[in-house]
């Protein structure tokens, strides 16, 4: 039973004004913001490293990775510890996000495939479009996000989501 529950559970989080989701199986932990040790001479989105129960966890400023201004520490700032596949190896990484929202239960019919619209380059990072009460979230493909060193564009991702929402609304009318 538990398996079935976790199979359709998604964790949503906020970056700026945009809401994204990740499958819960990918998320290992949610941590409060703590002191991050900066590693010199690293890409700007690599915020540094923290001590996660005795091992060293790299932390990414997800806002910077998504082409936004660096994160400003607030009460809701969190670190999502997720597991990604990088070059055939599974790697743990901490994502700094503005806020963690909720756990969503999504049925298969609520999950639409990644749209073939907009910049194809951006749609690579979209695993699914999740529909919750006529609203759409992007379920991110984190393996793809970290397989490249460049930044993503939150703006373009948001545009893709708006387009999907619009298309859906006009179709249902």
């Amino acid at each position: 039973m538990e398996n079935k529950n976790s199979n359709n559970s998604y964790l949503s989080f906020r970056l700026g004004e945009e809401i994204f989701a990740l499958h819960v199986s990918q998320v290992h932990k949610i941590l409060e913001m703590t002191k991050v040790t900066e590693v010199p001479k690293s890409p700007d989105y690599m915020k540094g490293v923290i001590n996660l129960r005795g091992s060293v966890l790299p932390v990414v400023d997800t806002r910077v990775k998504f082409g936004m201004t660096p994160i400003e520490k607030s009460k809701s700032t969190s670190i999502l510890v997720i597991e990604i596949e990088l070059g055939g190896e599974s790697v743990m990484v901490g994502l700094l996000v503005d806020a963690v929202h909720a756990v969503l239960k999504l049925e298969a019919e609520d999950l639409l495939p990644a749209p073939r619209i907009g910049n194809r380059y951006q749609s690579e990072f979209i695993l699914n479009m999740a529909k919750v009460k006529d609203k759409f979230f992007i379920v991110l493909n984190m393996d793809a996000v970290f397989s490249m060193e460049e930044h993503l564009s939150l703006k373009e991702l948001a545009e893709v989501r708006e387009k999907v929402t619009k298309d859906h609304l006009s179709a249902s009318k």
């Binding site: 040790t37 010199p40 001479k41 001590n51 060293v56 790299p58 990088l86 190896e89 990484v93």
Partner: peptide, 27 residues
């Protein structure tokens, strides 16, 4: 010594990290 991990593969000047007695990290 604890590896910095794959995301820091281009970091050559720092070979590893270590966890200090107070839980902070030194490079």
């Amino acid at each position: 010594l604890k590896p910095l991990g794959k995301l820091y593969h281009h970091q050559k000047m720092i070979s590893a990290a270590t966890i200090m007695g107070d839980g902070t990290i030194a490079l």
